[in-house]
């Protein structure tokens, strides 16, 4: 099989993705080593999180990523309509994530939780909200790509925009795949 020299999409998005991943890696490591000094506190407050909601969100992001893979596959076969449909399905999954996560935030803020409540909530709120903003940005990017695909703006020969948006969205999924077990499960 012929291998490519560069990853799919615009190379600039990959520089951006690597920079973003570096920030999240620092966040994850800081969480783990701060927990090291506050094990009881982290274990106690972790139990206040809704693991069922986190499961639904994980399934939503994995499914949306899969839909984006199908969108890229369709445009490579010159199927703009199929590409557009898969992208809107992925955006719907993203909206589901935002809805569930928003519900979690409403619950915690309603209970008086803030960034300064304790070290666990500081990490939980800042990490998940930082990721949450990436989900929203990803949805905006996918919507722009879907609209252009709907107008026939991509083809089998030229679909860099689809691959660029897809790569960003997969990064959002990738970060959550580490965040979910680290913050909600590992104890």
């Amino acid at each position: 099989m012929q291998k490519n020299k560069y990853p799919p999409g615009d190379l600039a998005i990959w520089i951006f993705i690597l920079a973003e991943l570096l920030v999240f890696a620092a966040f994850f490591s800081a969480y783990a080593f701060t927990r090291l000094k506050n094990v009881e506190l982290f274990n106690h407050y972790q139990l206040t999180l809704d693991r069922n909601a986190a499961l639904l969100n994980t399934l939503a992001l994995i499914t949306s990523s899969y839909f984006v893979v199908r969108a890229v596959a369709d445009i490579r076969e010159d199927d703009s309509k199929g590409c557009k449909r898969w992208l809107w399905a992925a955006i719907a999954m993203g909206a589901f994530f935002v809805l569930i996560k928003g519900g979690e935030y409403a619950h915690h803020f309603g209970a008086g939780v803030t960034l300064s409540s304790n070290a666990f909530y500081m990490f939980y709120l800042s990490l998940t909200f930082f990721h949450f903003m990436h989900v929203i940005l990803g949805m905006v990017i996918l919507a722009a790509v879907a609209l252009k695909a709907g107008r026939g703006g991509y083809s089998a020969d030229e679909h860099t925009g689809v691959e660029t948006g897809a790569s960003y969205w997969h990064m959002v999924d990738l970060v959550w795949l580490i965040l979910f077990p680290l913050v909600y499960v590992m104890r």
């Binding site: 099989m1 020299k5 990853p7 893979v69 691959e163 997969h170 990064m171 990738l174 795949l177």
Partner: peptide, 20 residues
């Protein structure tokens, strides 16, 4: 499990399996 899933996303969803 999370690391395996992450590698799957990189390889098969992001398409890095087909990059040298």
């Amino acid at each position: 499990f999370a690391l395996v899933k992450g590698q799957m996303v990189g390889d098969w969803f992001m398409g890095l399996h087909f990059v040298q």
